[in-house]
Structure formats: structure tokens, C-alpha cells
């Protein structure tokens, strides 16, 4: 038996919004420690890694490890049927071929359940080693989203250049070029607005805007984001989901032809 309950359906909706741009379907691996998902987008350029801890749920039970392959468009249809403040319970029997979503309104006057067929998906797990990154940038997630949106008007790629002075985002194309520089801040009063850089050595890498913009769909999950870069490994964009887990996106860089 698997059963996971969240007081707010809105949180699950935000998690789904954060992955459905990149993935059409995904396998949710459930164990007694929580729910994990690792999947590449169809072009295998980026990878999504989601972790939701068992103790982040209001109720969590997983008697046997279970992999639930879900079509995310179908899951979106079902979650649209919930109000954000409805409680959601996700349930499945061991070896089940379907999953049930139960939505309960705050006053319990309305209870609805939706059953969805599960899919058998090919599991393609990648081994991702622990990496000591050359630089890790912590910044407001809204600012990162704004920068990606603004720069994608100029070109298909963004160059991210991190030095001890700060981080520079650049893009160029037919209409011209754009540069956004962020300096480290020391605003202790508003910690959530700070930009901080842990730098071992300067790094400059080029990334496709399209994927960065998809990653920023996770912005409603967290007011902070971290960007981790090293010269010869993919960028890691991480959003902590408060009290529940995290979502990480990996993006392979572009290289000079």
C-alpha cells in the first residue's frame, strides 16, 4: 500500500508545473524515505531530479517500493480538478496498474477521487557523481526567472560568466545584445533578496535559453535558486521546496563548434 497526503494541493500543482514543460511522462519512485523522480527531456540535453521527503508529507506510508509511471498531461487534467487549498492524497495498491488522487475540501464537505492509469516506462537512470563546483550562485528565484525571460528575447543562448566580482548573464542575436550584471549583496535585513557567490575559480559557460526558461517554471516553489557551475560538467539549477524536498535541473552546456 502506498499513501501520501499533502494539506495543500497547490504544492503538488506547483511541482507538476515545474516538470511538465520538460517531460511528457515520468516515473515516480516511491520508497519509505519518500518520492524520487529522475528523467531526461526528450532531447536528452537536460535532466530533472525531484526529491520529496516522506517527512515532508502530512501522512506518508509506503509498504513496498513502487514505481509509478505517469502521463503528466493526464496528471495535469486531474490536478486541475482540485482547489489549491484542498488536501490531496495519492494512493496506490502494491503492484497496482492505477493510482488514485483524493481531494478533500477544507471543511470536508466535498470529497472527490480520480483514478489514473499508470504506464510502464523505460527507466533510464543516470549516475550523477557528487561534484565540487567551481562556483555556486545563490540568488532570488524571481530575479533569475526575469533574467532568463529578458535575455531570451535577444538570442537562443545565454552566456553565464561568474567571477569574484559577480555574475554576468549575456545574450546576443539579430536585434542586438544584452548584458545583465549582478554583484554580490550584503543585505542581511532581507536575506531572501541577497545574491551570494561561492567561488573557487571563475567559470564561463553557454546554455540554451529554452531550457533555462523551462527550469524557471519551478519559481513558485521557492523564493531562492542556486546555480552551480564547473568548466566541464552540466549546470545545476536547484530550488529547495520548503519542508518537503528539492528539484534540481541539469543542463549540458553548448560548446564552440
Amino acid at each position: 500500500m502506498f499513501e501520501a497526503r499533502l494539506v495543500s494541493s497547490g504544492t503538488l500543482k506547483k511541482v507538476l508545473d515545474a516538470i511538465k514543460d520538460l517531460l511528457n511522462e515520468a516515473s515516480f519512485d516511491c520508497s519509505d524515505t519518500g518520492i524520487q523522480l529522475q528523467a531526461m527531456d526528450s532531447s536528452h540535453v537536460s535532466l530533472v531530479s525531484l526529491s520529496l521527503r516522506a517527512d515532508g508529507f502530512d501522512k506518508y506510508r509506503c509498504d513496498r517500493n513502487l514505481t509509478m509511471g505517469m502521463n503528466l498531461a493526464s496528471m495535469t487534467k486531474i490536478l486541475k480538478c482540485a482547489n489549491n487549498d484542498d488536501t490531496v492524497t495519492v494512493k496506490a495498491q502494491d503492484d497496482a496498474d492505477c493510482v488514485t488522487f483524493v481531494f478533500e475540501s477544507k471543511k470536508q464537505e466535498k470529497i472527490s477521487d480520480y483514478e489514473m492509469k499508470l504506464m510502464n516506462l523505460d527507466q533510464e537512470h543516470l549516475g550523477i557523481p557528487e561534484t565540487d563546483f567551481s562556483c555556486v550562485i545563490h540568488m532570488p528565484s524571481g530575479e533569475f526567472s526575469r533574467i532568463c525571460r529578458d535575455l531570451s528575447q535577444f538570442g537562443e543562448s545565454v552566456i553565464i560568466s561568474c567571477t569574484k566580482e559577480g555574475v554576468r548573464f549575456s545574450s546576443s542575436g539579430d536585434i542586438g545584445s544584452a548584458n545583465i550584471k549582478l554583484a554580490q549583496t550584503n543585505n542581511i535585513d532581507k536575506e531572501e533578496e541577497t545574491v551570494s557567490i561561492d567561488l573557487q575559480e571563475p567559470v564561463t559557460l553557454t546554455f540554451a535559453c529554452q531550457y533555462l526558461n523551462s527550469f524557471t517554471k519551478a519559481t513558485p516553489l521557492s523564493n531562492r535558486v542556486s546555480l552551480s557551475m564547473s568548466a566541464n560538467v552540466p549546470l545545476v539549477v536547484e530550488y529547495e521546496i520548503p519542508d518537503l524536498g528539492h528539484i534540481r535541473y541539469y543542463l549540458a552546456p553548448k560548446i564552440e563548434e
Partner: peptide
């Protein structure tokens, strides 16, 4: 704009 690398250029299937 450079050529795009993929996840398999960095990580292996397990």
C-alpha cells in the same frame, strides 16, 4: 551559437 552537448556526454546509465 555553438553546438549543444547532451547528458550522455557527461553521465552514464546505471
Amino acid at each position: 551559437n555553438g553546438s549543444q552537448l547532451g547528458m550522455s556526454d557527461y553521465y552514464v546509465l546505471i
